[in-house]
Amino acid sequence: MIELHRVWKVFSVGPVKVPALSDISFRVAKGECVTLHGASGAGKTTLLRLLYREELPTEGDIEVLGCDVPALRVREVAALRRSIGVVFQDAKLLPGRTVYENVAFVLRVLGTPRREITPRVFDALRRVGLSARAQAYPAQLSQGEAQRAALARAIARKPLLLLADEPTGSLDESMAGEVIDIIKDIWARGTTVLFATHQARLAAALHQRTLHLLSGRLVKDEG
């Protein structure tokens, strides 16, 4: 499903080279649920962005869903992204559209048949417990609700792989617990999950394999 081999990512900020990821190698099998744990700035977001080709590695091989990711052409990048659901660290909900429309928008641009859209949107919203907030605008949502809306949008198109970048970022413990339960549920239905968090306790709560990042290095792979 995912395989990284000796991956480096070095950002150049003017003359300064910032190594965000150093010599990362690991593998995630189909059906696994893996937590990516590391402090802020450890390189979690960068690692996830490499997987859906929002960044190119400075060095190393990346394979996702059988694709040699750095070698993909534009059209193939789009095809890969259609199989990956991403929950962005900043949620990226469209402010001018309701929760329902935000989820439906993605289905529509991906060419989902019209009559399938409403049931799929409501199915996704039900799974994240947001059915009642379908007509709310992002500004009217609490942070927890916004994260769950972003999750609903990511799973509505039934991705093979879910990449969730700190979906519990700024949530209190009980709300974060709810999001964890939703992710567990998504994983239980067969989606491979890679879940990034800086909260050690949440990583432990999933009782699954955890990759520990420290300043861009993979220091521990446990579970």
Binding site: A78, F88, K92, F105, V109, R157
Partner: peptide, 13 residues
């Protein structure tokens, strides 16, 4: 924002 989302979810050109 829409265009970014479209790009990120792999909408056809």
């Amino acid at each position: 924002q829409e265009l970014e989302i479209m790009r990120l979810v792999g909408a056809p050109e």
